[in-house]
Design a protein around this nucleic acid. Structure first.
Lengths: 192, 192
DNA sequence: TTCATTTATTGAACTTGTTCAATGTTTTGA
DNA sequence: TCAAAACATTGAACAAGTTCAATAAATGAA
């Protein structure tokens, strides 16, 4: 059940078998049906999750009812609203399964327990947060400097596998454009 | 010399006097004149810095020669290119002083020394990276969901002090719009 | 102080992306 | 299997933001 998780962790830091087991025991397995939510706007996010199966989207709904996708999380990815989780504030985000999915969840309390009792876990999350931050920093630069066409082409190249599992609606919400405009971009690219 | 730094650290985690001193001793003080660079694109970023005086901008130059500001760092802020620093890759960024400034710099080697010899430092950077990431996540959502007018108004409200120290050119490069358009936004707002 | 440089403003033409409404296509679930 | 729902495409009118060029204002260095 926690095979994928242990491999993911060992990819970031090294940990003894015992430390690994102790840490993995803190997670609870949960099935999440397609379209159902792990988190709603306004709730306080009380978990950090590791996706073992399926696909999620983490998104925001703005004043005009438009959705923006902060990120997608498929197998082997982590999900949470780090803002709400860390600051115990109502979330601005929704987390929803786009396919029938499964996650391993750790509560805030158990995570804090791990920080204290398995010192290397501190490093694990330091390293993971760094990587997540670097990815977001790159995306920020791209969003500031590139045109929607280019961002779409980059997206396909970077996440060929996500591209196949997502609708254009979801991709447009990630790129920050309307799905109609994405459709026009696709036509333009196809006609080349 | 390291007063501001120690206060900043204690704001994130608690540390004994000795731990603090040992850590702070790893930093070197440096003066940076207005307009000069701490980091150029293509270089590998070998430091993490804490600003004790002045103001920096961290920016990217795109294919068309336009500049996008990733963030500004004034007194009490940290600066680095975490991507280049962590992955030892050539930086895509420039870091430049916008005023005569002073920083405390720690090298990669000394930072790693600290991780090993002062365990709490692991937590310090875990917490700091989390906060930075949360801030960037909020900005990403704003950039995806808000109009340039609103982002400008938000910027002034959130960073009144930076607003006064920056030219409209720099603010436009942060908001991701041309400075001409910012000028038009300002006129529109002023006329209300 | 003065002159050169940088910064800010403005208008006109243009490009990128949105909105809305209509139509066609695919997926889903009873 | 078939109707309903969700998704995708298209065009036309519109809005947001850019580009370019000209001018004015502010700043800085000698």
């Amino acid at each position: 059940m926690t095979e994928l998780l242990t491999r993911n962790i060992l990819n970031h830091i090294s940990l003894s078998k015992k430390e690994l087991d102790n840490f993995c025991d803190l997670f609870n397995h949960k099935k999440v049906l397609k379209k159902s939510f792990l988190l709603h706007e306004g709730e306080i996010c009380k978990f950090e999750g590791f996706v073992t199966k399926g696909l999620f989207r983490v998104f925001h709904v703005d004043q005009n009812g438009f959705e923006q996708v902060l990120y997608f999380a498929q197998e082997n990815w982590w999900i949470t609203d780090i803002d709400s989780f860390t600051n115990k504030q109502p979330s601005q985000l929704y987390i929803q399964a786009l396919e029938d999915s499964e996650v391993l969840l750790i509560s805030k309390k158990d995570k804090e327990f791990a920080y204290i009792n398995i010192p290397k876990i501190e490093k694990l999350f330091r390293v993971m947060t760094q990587k997540t931050h670097i990815a977001l920093q790159r995306r920020m630069i791209d969003n500031l400097s590139k045109t929607a066409d280019q961002r779409y082409i980059d997206f396909i190249k970077k996440y060929p596998n996500l591209f196949q599992r997502l609708t254009n609606l979801q991709i447009a919400a990630y790129l920050g454009i309307s799905h109609e405009f994405l459709s026009k971009i696709r036509r333009k690219i196809a006609s080349k």
